[in-house]
Design a protein around this nucleic acid. Structure first.
Length: 257
DNA sequence: AAACACAACAACCGCCCCGTG
DNA sequence: TCACGGGGCGGTTGTTGTGTT
């Protein structure tokens, strides 16, 4: 005996939303000042939509909601996603909280279709990848495995980041170069922290993650040739930088790609 | 021009968490 | 304390657009 379905699948429409449906949903939510009185499950009936409440919620949050941005991700966003993925893994809502105008679904899709491939390619090609596993597990089934739950540092050379390095928990000399790329340098820009619903909550959670790992950063050995590298982990940075987390985080050199 | 392959993104599915009665 | 249901989330699939042969 499983749980009852959230809606009658035979009675609801599925697939792409029409303009009329979008208009109905938008109109209903705007009429109610952005609130969904009675919950999402009751919304379709009240709004005259033959859709599942969950579908309405998804459509609103990922597409219709004011401030949602569509289209290309900037290099800054690329770096932020990679950094945060390395820190917290596939917690897309947490990652999205740091990217103004981006939704968890969009970030997830972007990662799965583009960034992951990009990073896999630099993990398996090129010399620096050979350093993977110097002191840790080699990139077996999932080269992404070492990324999850480990803070990492990007080392920016003259033309952008040339190495991405996992910092061993607890510092020491256990850091490993996990990827390398020569993509062009980019200029960081302040993020619009006003969009994200709970950036500070997300920052606090990240703090806790790093704190629980005992990571202090800045204690690993130096493999970089760059004179502009910054060996600052998220946690170390947060210890010194105060509370304007989101904006300054995105300006940190360790996010350079 | 047609067929095919691939990329990108929207949407769905099902599980889990948490508030509430 | 516990069952229930709504909401949130991550994984996956489906659809559409674009490039290539």
């Amino acid at each position: 005996m499983g749980r009852s379905p959230c809606c009658d699948k035979a009675a609801v429409k599925r697939g792409p939303w029409s303009e009329e449906e979008d208009a109905r949903l938008r109109s209903y939510i705007e009429q109610h000042g952005g609130a969904v009185a009675g919950g999402w499950m009751a919304l379709p009936r009240k709004a005259g939509l033959r859709r599942c409440g969950k579908s309405c919620r998804l459509r609103w949050l990922n597409y219709l909601r004011p401030g949602v941005r569509h289209g290309g991700f900037s290099p800054e966003e690329d770096r932020a996603i990679c950094a945060l993925y390395a820190a917290v893994g596939s917690r897309w809502s947490l990652i999205a909280a740091y990217l103004p105008g981006r939704t968890d679904n969009a970030v997830k899709n972007y990662w799965n279709t583009r960034l992951k491939k990009k990073l896999l390619s630099v993990s398996f090609e090129g010399e620096p990848c050979n350093a993977v596993g110097r002191n840790a597990a080699p990139p077996v089934a999932s080269p992404m495995a070492p990324w999850t739950a480990l803070p990492y540092t990007c080392y920016g050379g003259g033309g952008g980041v040339d190495q991405m390095r996992v910092v061993g928990a607890g510092g020491g000399t256990t850091d490993n170069v996990i990827a390398s790329t020569n993509s062009a340098a980019v200029v960081s820009q302040p993020a619009d922290a006003s969009y994200s619903s709970e950036p500070m909550a997300a920052a606090t959670e990240l703090d806790e993650i790093f704190r629980s790992m005992g990571t202090t950063g800045g204690e690993h050995s130096d493999l970089s040739q760059s004179s502009t590298e910054t060996e600052t982990s998220w946690y170390q940075y947060r210890q010194h930088a105060g509370e304007s987390v989101l904006q300054q985080h995105l300006e940190m050199p360790y996010l350079y790609w």
